[in-house]
């Protein structure tokens, strides 16, 4: 399995704070890599640094054969990286349709892709012409993910998609992400929900204090409660 994304010795400073302290990680093509860790471990900063939203102070980031650590965010996005931030960041003043039109960078909306998305998230069809700001938190998350997959992407960076959502919506999101995975997408997923992590993850990276402290298979971590307690402070079951 080739690595689609590779970070080597990446450091990121935000103001005078040294957040990422030499991150080394790889994300294999066609797999879902979970990024776990306590709050403040540097998970969101890692995604934002890959996306170019915060510039790496040193180190190398490669997407396939391309070096991207010095590239601007739009250029990284145009290389095929989709980003779903923790805040969802839907455009509240735009309708659901307009949010997706904007995300479909390469042309008009593809009806078959849209039908596929509506299959998972029927609420988006229902509120097609409603302002995104009027959607519920779960619906906004659906829109945020739909925006990232409205066109094929090489790599999806998704930050805590299930955070604060009702169980039924979490299940719908998991099904959607599973389907995206079955289609061969490569995903780097920050997630605190154990069920989601176990269902979706092929590999796992655990962060602490701005460094990767564990890497391995998700199934192995899910089966090893003492390891979970050592790495995350409590077992993943408790995160459900």
């Amino acid at each position: 399995m080739t690595d689609l994304l590779k970070l080597s010795g990446v450091h990121t400073h935000i103001g005078r704070y040294h957040i990422l302290q030499g991150i080394d990680l790889t994300v294999p093509q066609g797999q879902v890599t979970m990024l776990l860790g306590r709050n403040g471990a540097g998970k969101t900063t890692t995604l934002r640094t890959i996306m170019g939203l915060w510039q790496a102070s040193s180190g190398e980031i490669s997407l396939g054969s391309e070096r991207i650590e010095s590239r601007a965010t739009p250029d990284i996005a145009r290389l095929g990286v989709g980003y779903v931030p923790e805040s969802m960041a839907v455009f509240s003043d735009l309708t659901v349709k307009e949010n997706l039109v904007l995300a479909a960078r390469d042309g008009p909306l593809d009806d078959s892709q849209l039908d596929w998305i509506f299959g998972f998230f029927p609420a988006l069809r229902r509120f097609w012409l409603s302002r995104a700001g009027s959607l519920s938190g779960g619906q906004k998350q659906m829109l945020s993910i739909a925006r990232a997959i409205i066109e094929p992407r090489k790599l999806l960076l998704i930050d805590e998609p299930t955070k604060g959502l009702a169980p039924a919506i979490v299940m719908a999101l998991i099904e959607c992400l599973k389907e995206i995975k079955r289609k061969g997408a490569t995903i780097l997923l920050v997630e605190q929900n154990f069920f989601a992590a176990r269902e979706l993850g092929d590999n796992v990276l655990v962060m602490d204090n701005g460094t990767i402290v564990h890497r391995g298979e998700m199934a192995a971590l899910a089966a090893d409660v003492p390891l979970q307690e050592r790495l995350l402070g409590l077992s993943l079951e408790a995160h459900q």
């Binding site: 939203l53 996005a77 931030p85 509240s92 735009l94």
Partner: peptide, 13 residues
Amino acid sequence: RAGVENREMVEAL
């Protein structure tokens, strides 16, 4: 209109 609301996300798209 999107940029008025969230410049960063427009760039991320």
